[in-house]
Amino acid sequence: NQASVVANQLIPINTALTLVMMRSEVVTPVGIPADDIPRLVSMQVNRAVPLGTTLMPDMVKGYP
């Protein structure tokens, strides 16, 4: 099973992602692959992302 990117904390709308905000976890449904975490750094979320939420491609501005 492939690990996905999961919010490690509440991420407010328009926040630029940092490594501490994300963790990898095997979840269903599958979200953004954990391998993409380095690419996500400094990209902004377009909505508030609660703790434990799987990051989906449509939540991150400019992804992929």
Rank of each mutant, 00 (worst) to 15 (best):
A7P: 02
R23W: 04
R23F: 04
P38Y: 10
V26W: 12
P12G: 07
R47C: 05
T28Y: 12
M56A: 06
T54S: 04
V60K: 00
L51Q: 11
M56C: 04
L10N: 13
M56V: 08
I11L: 09
L10E: 15
N14M: 09
A7H: 01
S4N: 00
L51G: 08
G31F: 02
P33Y: 06
D36H: 14
V20L: 09
L19R: 13
L40D: 01
I11M: 04
D35T: 14
G62S: 14
I37H: 02
R47T: 13
L17W: 02
I37Y: 03
Q9F: 06
G31V: 01
D58E: 13
S24D: 09
V49S: 01
M22G: 01
G52A: 06
A48E: 15
N46H: 10
A34T: 10
V26L: 13
P50M: 10
G31A: 03
V60W: 01
S24M: 11
V6P: 01
P57F: 06
P50A: 08
G62N: 15
N14P: 02
I32P: 00
T15S: 10
N8E: 08
T54K: 04
N14D: 11
E25Y: 07
M22Y: 02
R39T: 10
V49N: 02
V49D: 02
T28M: 15
N1Q: 14
P57G: 08
G62P: 06
M22T: 02
V20C: 05
G62K: 07
D35E: 15
V41R: 07
D36E: 13
K61S: 10
V5D: 00
N1T: 14
Q9R: 08
M22S: 01
A34L: 03
T54I: 10
S42A: 15
T28I: 11
M56R: 09
D58C: 04
V41Q: 07
P50Q: 13
D36A: 13
V27E: 02
L17H: 01
I32S: 00
L17S: 00
G52M: 05
P12M: 06
I37C: 04
M43G: 03
L55H: 01
T15Q: 09
N14I: 03
V27P: 01
Q2H: 12
S42Q: 10
A48M: 13
M56F: 13
V49G: 02
V49C: 05
G31M: 02
N8W: 04
M22P: 00
R39P: 03
